[in-house]
Amino acid sequence: MRIKVDAEKCEGHSRCYSLAPELVDVDDLGNAFELNDGEVPAGLEDKARLIVDNCPEFAITIEE
């Protein structure tokens, strides 16, 4: 599973980072970027879905 953050949509709420720092980090403006090239480590698939379902800007997507 891979996740992708759309930098155009992200407004830097950092909610994804607070819920899953294993999967994303944020830059100086709070905007998110994927760790690990977006590759979701085994066992963290649920967390990946959680951050998708919590992003108020609809900026994170999953590519199975």
Partner: peptide
Amino acid sequence: RRRNRHIAFGAGIHRCAGSN
């Protein structure tokens, strides 16, 4: 609750700067 795209901190360009 797992699906929670709430906008208590607003949305778009004025999204709360102090949310963290």
